[in-house]
Design a protein around this nucleic acid. Structure first.
Lengths: 221, 221
DNA sequence: TGCCTCATGTCAGCAAGTTGTCAGGTTGGG
DNA sequence: CCCAACCTGACAACTTGCTGACATGAGGCA
């Protein structure tokens, strides 16, 4: 899952980024409001962590413009100025949750997971489709109840496809969510990765939509 | 467990620090109110021991600002000026407990343990998973009822993993909780430590999740 | 003081797991 | 029937984690 982190304080940004990556997310960081707006407007993120005190454009303004443009990704708002009014403002503007600084990393991760879940309409940190179940807390995937050992990249792939189940996910989107940034595209690494996952979870779990991408159908077998 | 100690008297600070470390905590000490505020605001501690008579900013003011910012770690307040009014003040401000100087080290440790437990919502200081049991009060680990001698670092490692059982804990998080601060990462000290613990508790107690971290599964064998 | 023990970090080498690349095969839509 | 898209197996390069051996330093004790 790709997450956009908008935070101008280098140190905090790197702390958060590390914590999120340790939790299996792919993090992209930007440091000012205009960058943030542009990225959030043109790229596709599973969630955004948005600091309010930003150079160039205020966080709330950024959020407002995203929402005005129909961008619907869940947004977790951070602020050092922990006032109630601001909190209400933030939620009115379209923030999904609000976390006053400073906070504990575990709490950030928990809230992030929660808004991602909520935005996908799930209730628990365990997702199941057909015979496949994924536990995000344990970073564990099971097939008919049997635990399957997945590597880091394999896990990210499965996790993203499961979060997006019932929808066709383009190769590009997968690349962005599994690896950090894409760039080089004369490689079939992703196809190989898909192959390896299929070998472990069964050939028919991930369907190929030739020309469009891949999907895990909502109701499988 | 990381503890922040705020105390301007060098001698007392070092005494307390020693006592706490002997009890298995990782202690960081600061000597004035502004440092204290900053640290407590930006870092993540399991508890704080806060002296009230401080240079630069009064202890109560520090506490007030932490709480205003939503910091929720348990705080044990120390004061030499053992007045009732101050005590009430302290507890109103958000202190979890109050200890008038002078005090016996045992009492300090006991109270600290108590507020940490309370804040975590645990009723007992004993945790058990499978054949392993850990008593935080006695700092004792048993395997199938047999006491196992662990060094300080080994103990911290086991304690943190047990507190986080059922969840994958990244190397980074372990480093922070076992050693004070992380930073240097050209060392395999943590891996060696894991190895030594495994030699004592059995190879399969701690599972390695290659690329993710380590975990003690909730239901073990 | 000088010797011992214990805790802990460092290092090098090994074993195993992971991942990208490539070459050649397969497939399905136009 | 053709071709781009996709799959597959093999392989090599690289990472990651484990282990034993050793160095160091603190502290206890004779």
């Amino acid at each position: 899952m790709r997450v956009l982190l908008v935070e101008d304080d280098q140190r905090i940004a790197s702390d958060i980024s590390q914590a999120l990556e340790a939790s299996g997310y792919v993090v992209e960081t930007v440091g000012d409001g205009e960058d943030a707006w542009f990225r959030g407007d043109t790229e596709d993120y599973g969630a955004v962590i948005l600091d309010l005190g930003l150079p160039l454009m205020d966080g709330l303004a950024v959020l407002k413009r995203w929402r005005a443009n129909g961008r619907r990704m869940p947004v977790l708002v951070l602020t050092a100025r922990g006032s109630w009014a601001e909190r209400v403002d933030g939620i009115d503007t379209g923030a999904d949750d609000y976390l006053p600084k400073p906070f504990r990393m575990e709490e950030l991760v928990a809230r992030l997971r929660s808004i991602i879940r909520r935005s996908a309409g799930h209730a628990s940190s365990v997702m199941a489709v057909g015979e496949i179940a994924l536990d995000e807390r344990q970073m564990k995937v099971t097939l008919r109840g049997i635990p399957i050992a997945l590597s880091l990249l394999e896990y990210r792939l499965v996790a993203h496809l499961l979060r997006s189940r019932g929808r066709v996910v383009s190769q590009q989107e997968l690349n962005e969510n599994v690896y950090g940034h894409d760039e080089e595209h004369d490689s079939n690494a992703l196809e190989v990765l898909i192959g390896r996952v299929r070998k472990k979870l069964g050939t028919d779990v991930i369907e190929t939509r030739r020309g469009f991408g891949y999907t895990i159908p909502e109701i499988s077998t």
